[in-house]
Design a protein around this nucleic acid. Structure first.
Lengths: 346, 346
DNA sequence: CTGTTAGCGCATTCAC
DNA sequence: GTGAATGCGCTAACAG
């Protein structure tokens, strides 16, 4: 019961034509909905034979002939083998896949460690109408990868990355992390927070930098007497975050607010405070960043900024489709707004 | 600065051959690593021209010629437009994409509402080496969709579905929900739970049925005097779950334990209990189902059964690759174990 | 409305 | 080692 071994030969357009007693061209016309050229009677006949022979069109042959693809490549450059398991990436891919599928395009996922991408042959073997790319890693490396993708001379949508690629055929798409930082900053300052502690992973991402810049903007706009300290943890893992905060607190007084560079960091920090009988939000306020709607009902209900990750993916798909239709991207950069979410921790 | 409009013509194998002053055949040999037929000198020359002309091989032409695909289709049949945003699905896709990418296969995602799939033409336009499918909806509908996919006469891996498709070229892959139910049951019974309340969505999925069956197994094995009540909520949404539980509690005493058919349901139930000053786990124990490792640090830390969703996807990729290599699936059904996770709620 | 011709880019076969 | 001829399945252009 482990499946049949022999594959039946697939029927071609010729087979259908012969069976329906028409020319291959007529079958092609039926397939492509050019019904003006086909009488209803022959059409029915052709369709019946298609069904009967279980005919499926070869997209390879078709795409070769019409020199056009109905597929977009999503390149995810990451060292971790579980890259796609990340909720943010996942949401982006979901939005992208949906936007493309609606237009009858397919999304081809392709994850690579950045080292593998260095051998240029890899991407030479994928034939798609355009690429979307989510690149992780240090800034310089990311720029190299982005440049390599641009060299493919195909439409390219970059997520969470600035497009410093000259006049390449590129659109950079990101969420408004700067604005998100301002929202968080204003929220805290309105609650008389004087000393903010921002916990980040040591590896600073551009998005995290923007969030911090937004906080600083907010402080400056309020007159600038609040202070902001950045505390880098070795990684964003639960243990590393707690270790960093623990060490910090040995030699420093409690801040008025802890700002996590993202939600998991904020949660790790908050649980450490809990363990030490520090009350949140009475003694210390805690806020996160890049929350997701789907997490709304888990607890603690963090005050955070909601990421429009799904919309980011959708927008990317739309931008790509528009580009393919019109010949150029309408905008070289797109920034999507984030939404402030009041939780129980401030 | 919105991108160049003109696409440079792509170089073909002929162009490279001409530039390197060799025949197209030689270029092809270089591309396919048949180095025994190419002298090192010409090889270098060819590779330099490939680089210089930014040549990329047409997979369409190649696949057409060799009648072979390097891509697997992932069909997700779901009414909701955000199908992929579901964490379980997402993890499965992540594992699948990684397994395939490692073997230099591409994953083509294709989401459809099940109604659209009824028109048979849709899938006739996708040319892949095999299909993986995740189908949602009522059991009968799912069976119809599965049958339609089997008709494609291509290797097929079905997630969370029994393969009642005769000797079709199919492999059914699922997690051990029955065993998971037993684990939960044993855990509760060991804590002297007499009355269990299982909250499910009204739309009962096969996986949920298996979980309940596992609970019953466990009760039977323990002598059978504990009772199990199933409470269907209109949906698995936060509000519907709370409404159902609330109504139930109007006319029934508190159970000893509430079992959510999945984690979000358990959390909704637990928060309702919290609101009513019912202590968890002292007064009522609460357990979930289908938790994910990534959620470990969010709170409440539910007692639950961890889903091997990522591994499910990986295993699917491996099974498919093995099938493509050997001509038949090694196993028609594969069940992956789940892992019990002790939280703070029991 | 329907049929014929030709070629998309590549790899296999067989010469050289 | 290398080159020339052939055809994979499909569709654009044109002829009936």
């Amino acid at each position: 019961m482990t499946g049949k071994v022999v594959r039946k030969e697939r029927a071609t357009i010729k087979d259908v034509a012969r069976a329906a007693e028409v020319s291959p061209m007529t079958v092609s016309n039926v397939l492509n909905g050019r019904l003006q050229f086909v009488s209803p009677a022959t059409r029915k006949r052709v369709e019946r034979e298609i069904e009967r022979l279980n005919y499926r069109r070869s997209t390879n042959a078709r795409n070769l002939r019409v020199a056009e693809q109905r597929s977009i490549g999503m390149v995810i450059v990451d060292e971790s083998p579980t890259f796609l398991a990340d909720f943010f990436t996942c949401q982006v891919v979901a939005g992208l896949a949906n936007a493309l599928n609606r237009a009858d395009y397919t999304l081809s996922i392709y994850g690579v460690p950045s080292a593998a991408l260095a051998q240029s042959m890899i991407l030479r073997n994928y034939e798609v109408a355009g690429f979307c790319a989510m690149i992780s890693g240090p800034a310089e490396e990311r720029a190299v990868v982005a440049r390599r993708l641009a060299e493919l001379e195909q439409p390219l949508v970059l997520f969470q990355q600035t497009a410093d690629l000259g006049d390449a055929d590129v659109c950079a798409l990101r969420q408004d992390d700067l604005g998100g930082g301002r929202l968080i900053g204003d929220h805290l300052l309105a609650r008389r927070v004087e000393r903010m502690l921002v916990v980040t992973p040591r590896q600073i991402w551009p998005a995290v930098e923007s969030r911090i810049a937004g906080l600083r903007d907010s402080i400056a706009a309020a007159g600038g007497h609040a202070t902001l300290t950045v505390l880098p943890a070795n990684s964003e893992s639960f243990a590393d975050v707690q270790a960093a905060l623990s060490t910090y607190l040995e030699t420093n007084p409690l801040p008025d607010a802890v700002v996590g560079a993202n939600d998991p960091i904020a949660i790790a920090a908050m649980l450490l405070l809990n363990d030490r009988a520090v009350r949140v939000p009475e003694d210390v306020r805690v806020v996160g960043f890049n929350g997701f709607d789907a997490h709304r009902y888990s607890r603690p209900h963090l005050t955070t900024v909601l990421s429009p990750a799904y919309e980011l993916g959708e927008k990317a798909g739309e931008a790509m489709l528009q580009r393919l239709k019109s010949g150029h991207f309408n905008a070289a950069e797109i920034t999507l707004p984030v939404v402030f979410e009041q939780g129980f921790t401030t």
